[in-house]
Design a protein around this nucleic acid. Structure first.
Length: 661
RNA sequence: GCUGCCGUAGCUCAGUGGUAGAGCGCGUCAUUGGUAAUGACGAGGUCGGGAGUUCAAUCCUCCCCGGCAGCACCA
């Protein structure tokens, strides 16, 4: 042992255990040795350590005082290790089965991991079983993961010799100060920053390759397309099964499937990305829109309507023409040629565009007439129908469409009103999200991106304004540097749905740029012109997407106030048809959305059909009910039936169907 | 837009180098039934579009269109 090493060994370090106890060790003691010193069983179960909150290899020599936790395979923290180790195992398996395949990167993601490979032939789902079998062999061998630090040149030469060009690029791009860490498992090795568990055996067998897809090298659409294998890995078979079951549940909630089954809407080739709303789907829309209008009125908004087709001069002035033109639908303002042998369009007409957003139009309304500081804030709302030419591959049911209706509004205010307006909007949102059934809202503050308009001064002011508002509204949030819009920072409201998925719905964006570009101003107390600040805000985001989210959140079983059909009156025999019609008329007169089912079918059949159709309430009437003037009520999801006098039932249903606001 | 997979009746799907089948749904008839599928009969498809190979193509090849998954994008 060298003198230096002796000297280091002589040093003592103090480690603090999770329970607060401290222990003293010689510097250079490994996590495994620490575990052994506590209990043999702990050492046996240990797969890694956490030093000051950071996961590290069990074999890492500890050289300074730290908080330490021994991580066992059953701990939550181990999931990340299992998945990352599993990624290495998968990469080894793929290279063993498909020689010539290059490895690139393989990070953990929510619920699993992926690995990107460079290979000329694509993988097919048939390869999955082969790869999984090979992975199980590698796990069974239980080779130790060993960590080495290589000289940069040696690493580059080694990977070059293996033909691993992507790894070479990764190493070359690592900062000079970074150690080049290599993890070996048997003969196979990979560049990796770790940490890993002791052996491949710790990965276990609760993993599954899920799908294959293309992915750009380094996320850049100008670079090579790699083949990505997505997989999932868990601590136990049961966890894996639960996860697979959860995916099946999510598939059952797919709004495209439910939309067809419930006859809500459709989309067809002739209008890709635009929605044909059927009567039932549109009734959901109308219910939500009416609800929002009541909220807007309460919140002091005025509602406007602005043109679809606007001269590109306005889009040039607003900056959209320069930045987003490729996503705009441009329409020439000319009479198309009616002669068959001539082109329909001359190509020389002046250009109009379908509006991709409402804000420039709202500024036009603001700009009509002189505004005084006394007029502010002006909260201008519009259910604005916008068109965006989204890429084909981006379209997805109601979630990503080309024609959408935003529940949009712009608040024109003075700088000193930003905070109070932002606070008011946060309260506005929390009422709405509660009413539509969300309990878990997370807020992100997206800060200035690299490419942006406006001076740093203005950005400082805008970002701090939002921070102050969040503080004033007592809202917890996380900051996301670089994610802001080009014209200003924004608040994003992310909501967790019934099965734990997160949707970004609401947004509040501060904009100092557009009022400047479109020369909006107001006369201040001092008699001079001033720039108003614009707050862009939305609660649902788009009506289309929001309805999609509602369908998935509720698995089609929408709350009564949103449900397309709130009640079906179903007859048992044709003797009750007359009475059923009376019931139907009464509910209809009470303003409810009801259907009458007097078809010549058995009651079992009707109950099943309307249950499958997610009708929340069914009134079943037969001869008895007709005589007694009652209804037998059956609620979706329950086998129970309650017989009730018709008048009471109607009063109860009317009250249950009332929107929460 | 990129990569991969897919495209057969309204829906879900089977099938074959010799121009097609099931279940549900739809229509007709019988049945008047008490809370998740009553029975019988019937109609319905130029197998996404175009071209090629072949005596013959829904099936094989190519091109196009569209869908799905992921990537990129998302003002």
């Amino acid at each position: 042992m060298s003198n230096a090493a002796l000297a280091q060994n002589a040093q003592q370090i103090t480690l603090t255990l999770p329970d607060g106890a401290t222990r003293t060790y010689a510097s250079g003691t490994t996590g495994l040795q620490v575990a052994e010193s506590i209990a043999k069983s702990l050492a046996k179960a240990a797969v890694a350590i956490k030093l000051d909150g950071q996961l590290c290899d069990l074999s890492l020599p500890i050289t300074k005082d730290a908080r330490i936790a021994i991580i066992k395979r059953e701990n939550d923290e181990a999931l990340e290790l299992i998945r990352h180790d599993c990624a290495h195992v998968m990469a080894e398996a793929v290279q063993a089965l498909f020689p010539g395949t290059q490895v690139t990167i393989g990070p953990c993601i929510e619920n699993g991991f992926y690995y990107d490979f460079a290979r000329n032939e694509p993988f097919t789902p048939d390869d999955f079983a082969k790869i999984e079998a090979k992975m199980k062999e590698i796990v069974a061998k239980g080779e130790a993961f060993t960590r080495e630090v290589w000289d940069r040149e040696k690493a580059i030469e080694t990977f070059k010799a293996k033909g691993e060009n992507y790894k070479v690029e990764l190493i070359q791009d690592l900062p000079e100060t970074e150690e080049i860490k290599i993890y070996k498992q048997g003969d196979w090795f990979d560049l990796c920053r770790g940490p890993h568990m002791p052996t491949t055996a710790h990965v276990g067998t609760a993993f599954k390759i899920m799908k294959v897809a293309g992915a750009y090298w380094r996320g850049d659409s100008n670079r090579a397309m790699l083949t990505r294998l997505y997989a999932t890995a868990w601590r136990t078979e049961k966890e894996l099964q639960d996860y697979l079951t959860q995916i099946e549940e999510a598939e059952k909630r797919d709004h495209r499937k439910l939309g067809r089954e419930m006859d809500l809407f459709h989309i067809q080739d002739e209008a890709q990305g635009s929605v044909f709303w059927h009567p039932k789907g549109y009734s959901i829309w109308l219910a939500l829109e009416a609800y929002l209008r009541r909220r807007l009125k309460e919140g002091g908004y005025v509602e406007v309507k602005t043109p679809q087709l606007i001269d590109n001069k306005l889009w040039v002035a607003s900056g959209h023409w320069g930045k987003y033109r490729e996503n705009m639908f441009v329409v020439p303002d000319e009479v198309p040629s009616t002669e068959d042998d001539k082109p329909v369009l001359s190509g020389k007409a002046r250009l109009m565009a379908l509006k991709p957003m409402n804000c420039p139009a709202h500024v036009q309304i603001f700009n009509q007439g002189l505004k005084s500081y006394r007029d502010l804030p002006i909260r201008m709302a519009e259910f604005g129908c916008c068109h965006r030419n989204e890429a084909h591959g981006a379209l997805h049911g109601l979630m990503r469409v080309r024609q959408m209706t935003q529940d949009d509004a712009h608040i024109f205010c003075r700088e000193d009103q930003i905070e109070s307006e932002a606070v008011a909007f946060c309260n506005f949102l929390s009422n709405i999200y509660r009413d539509v059934g969300f309990t878990d809202v997370r807020v992100r503050l997206a800060l200035r991106p690299d490419a942006r308009a406006g001076s740093d001064d203005v950005w400082d002011k805008a970002e701090n304004g939002l921070r102050l508002a969040l503080k004033a509204a007592n809202i917890e949030y996380t900051e996301a540097p670089g994610d802001g819009a080009f014209y200003g920072p924004k608040l994003e409201f992310h909501l967790r749905d019934a099965i734990g998925r997160s949707w970004q719905l609401g947004t509040l964006q501060l904009d100092f740029v557009l009022p400047e570009r479109l020369d909006a101003n107001y006369i201040g107390e001092d008699g001079n012109k001033h720039r108003p600040v614009m707050l862009h805000r939305a609660a649902f985001g788009s009506m289309e997407r929001f309805i999609g989210v509602m369908i998935e959140h509720y698995a089609g079983k929408l709350p009564l106030w949103m449900a397309p059909t709130q009640c079906v009156i179903a007859t048992i025999t044709s003797e009750a048809d007359g009475y059923a019609r009376e019931v139907y008329e009464q509910l209809k007169d009470a303003g409810l959305r009801v259907e009458l089912d007097t078809r010549n079918e058995k009651i079992n059949y009707k109950v099943r059909e309307h249950s499958v159709g997610k009708v929340p309430v069914m009134y079943v009437v037969g001869a008895r009910e007709a005589t007694d003037k009652t209804v037998a009520i059956r609620r979706l999801g329950s086998q129970d039936q309650t017989v009730m006098p018709l008048t009471d039932a109607v009063a109860e249903l009317v009250s249950n169907c009332k929107a929460p606001f």
